[in-house]
Amino acid sequence: SFQYVPVQLQGGAPWGFTLKGGLEHCEPLTVSKIEDGGKAALSQKMRTGDELVNINGTPLYGSRQEALILIKGSFRILKLIVRRRN
């Protein structure tokens, strides 16, 4: 089963996490790295392996390109929903 975790990061880029996968690579869009001391790490809500399913209220369909555009369009606040295996 899965758990959906809301994450809100503040203060602008860099957000402190790296993505891998996506439709382009025929795999889920997941968090591959969280930078020590970065905003994602400080939130204590994101983990490597989390799947990104929503950015700023926009549902994602797995495209890494789409996710990067939405993330780049976030100035002060980035709201994410990640899906994690229980």
Rank of each mutant, 00 (worst) to 15 (best):
A67Q: 02
F2S: 06
E24D: 13
L19F: 09
V82N: 05
P6Q: 15
L52Y: 02
F17S: 05
V31D: 00
S74N: 10
K72R: 13
W15G: 06
Y61S: 15
R76H: 13
F2H: 10
S1A: 07
L60D: 01
I77W: 09
A13S: 10
R64D: 03
T18D: 15
M46E: 05
Y61H: 15
F2V: 03
G12S: 05
S32T: 09
D50V: 01
G11I: 05
G57V: 06
A67F: 05
Q65A: 12
E51S: 03
K33L: 10
R64V: 10
L78I: 08
E66W: 07
G22D: 01
G49M: 01
V5R: 02
K72I: 05
I69D: 15
S43F: 00
S32A: 14
G11M: 07
T48G: 07
E27C: 09
G57L: 06
P6E: 15
Q8D: 11
G37T: 07
G57A: 02
G12D: 07
L68G: 12
L68Y: 12
G16M: 05
K33G: 12
Q65M: 08
G12N: 07
V5K: 01
V7R: 05
D36K: 10
E51A: 00
W15Y: 05
V82C: 08
V31M: 02
S43D: 10
N56D: 08
Q65S: 13
L42V: 10
P14G: 00
L78K: 00
V7W: 02
I81E: 07
L9G: 04
L60P: 07
K20Y: 08
G73D: 13
K33I: 11
T18L: 09
A67K: 05
R83V: 05
F17W: 07
K39C: 07
F17D: 07
L80Q: 06
P28V: 00
I34G: 03
S63Y: 12
L19R: 02
G57W: 00
G22L: 04
I55Q: 03
M46L: 14
L70E: 07
G11Y: 01
I34V: 10
Y4A: 06
V5M: 07
D36P: 14
L70T: 05
L68E: 15
R84E: 04
A40W: 02
G11L: 02
A40S: 06
G38M: 00
Q65E: 14
R85S: 12
T18G: 10
P14N: 03
A13G: 10
S1Y: 15
T30R: 09
L29E: 00
T48F: 10
G22H: 04
G11W: 05
E35Q: 13
Q3L: 11
Y61P: 08
R47F: 15
E27V: 12
